[in-house]
Each structure stands twice: as structure tokens, then as C-alpha cells.
Simulated scan of single mutants.
Amino acid sequence: MEKNMGTTDRVIRVILAIIVVALYFTNIITGTVGITLMALAGIFLITGFISFCPLYTPFGLNTCSKK
């Protein structure tokens, strides 16, 4: 797996995941929407930590800075 996510992309994903988790545990989002958003937050955390997004590959996206 070659990294295809830049630092800004990773930080945004982790921040969004933290916000969703906080909203879920404060019961602002609940039910099916809450569970779906929690699953998405988990995916955001995983992809943010490993710096690889599988959906970027078929579209040829890469947010890593070119060095």
C-alpha cells in the first residue's frame, strides 16, 4: 500500500471522526443515522492513521505532497 493521503487530509478525517463520536455519545445523533456515522467515523480513523484511502486508487487521487 503506497500512501495516498496528505497531512491535511488525514487531520480533517480524524477531526471529523472525533466530532461524530462526540455527537453520538452525547446523544445528539442517534438511531440508524448515528450507527452509520459511527461506522464512517471508524473508517475515517483507520484511513487517517494508515494514510491510505482505497477509494482514491481507482480515481487516481493522491493528496500527498510531491517531493
Results as ranks from 00 to 15, higher is better:
residue 1 M to D: 06
residue 3 K to I: 04
residue 4 N to Y: 02
residue 4 N to L: 05
residue 5 M to G: 01
residue 7 T to F: 14
residue 8 T to Y: 05
residue 9 D to W: 01
residue 9 D to N: 09
residue 9 D to R: 07
residue 9 D to H: 15
residue 9 D to G: 12
residue 15 I to L: 15
residue 15 I to M: 11
residue 16 L to R: 03
residue 16 L to V: 08
residue 17 A to T: 02
residue 18 I to K: 02
residue 18 I to H: 05
residue 18 I to W: 07
residue 18 I to Y: 04
residue 18 I to R: 05
residue 19 I to F: 10
residue 20 V to R: 00
residue 20 V to C: 04
residue 21 V to T: 12
residue 22 A to V: 14
residue 22 A to R: 06
residue 22 A to S: 11
residue 22 A to F: 13
residue 23 L to C: 10
residue 23 L to P: 00
residue 23 L to R: 01
residue 24 Y to L: 08
residue 25 F to D: 02
residue 25 F to C: 08
residue 25 F to K: 07
residue 26 T to M: 13
residue 26 T to D: 08
residue 28 I to F: 06
residue 28 I to H: 07
residue 30 T to D: 11
residue 31 G to W: 00
residue 32 T to R: 11
residue 33 V to H: 08
residue 33 V to E: 08
residue 33 V to S: 06
residue 34 G to I: 00
residue 34 G to V: 01
residue 34 G to D: 01
residue 35 I to P: 00
residue 35 I to L: 12
residue 36 T to W: 00
residue 36 T to M: 09
residue 36 T to L: 14
residue 37 L to D: 05
residue 37 L to S: 03
residue 38 M to P: 01
residue 38 M to V: 15
residue 39 A to F: 07
residue 39 A to E: 04
residue 40 L to D: 01
residue 43 I to R: 05
residue 44 F to P: 04
residue 46 I to S: 10
residue 47 T to N: 04
residue 48 G to Q: 08
residue 48 G to V: 13
residue 48 G to Y: 08
residue 49 F to M: 13
residue 49 F to I: 15
residue 49 F to A: 15
residue 49 F to W: 13
residue 50 I to L: 12
residue 51 S to W: 10
residue 52 F to G: 04
residue 53 C to V: 06
residue 54 P to H: 12
residue 56 Y to F: 10
residue 57 T to D: 13
residue 58 P to F: 03
residue 58 P to G: 09
residue 60 G to T: 01
residue 60 G to V: 05
residue 61 L to H: 00
residue 61 L to D: 05
residue 61 L to A: 04
residue 63 T to Y: 00
residue 63 T to H: 01
residue 64 C to A: 12
residue 65 S to N: 09
residue 65 S to E: 15
residue 65 S to K: 15
residue 66 K to P: 02
residue 67 K to S: 11
residue 67 K to Y: 09
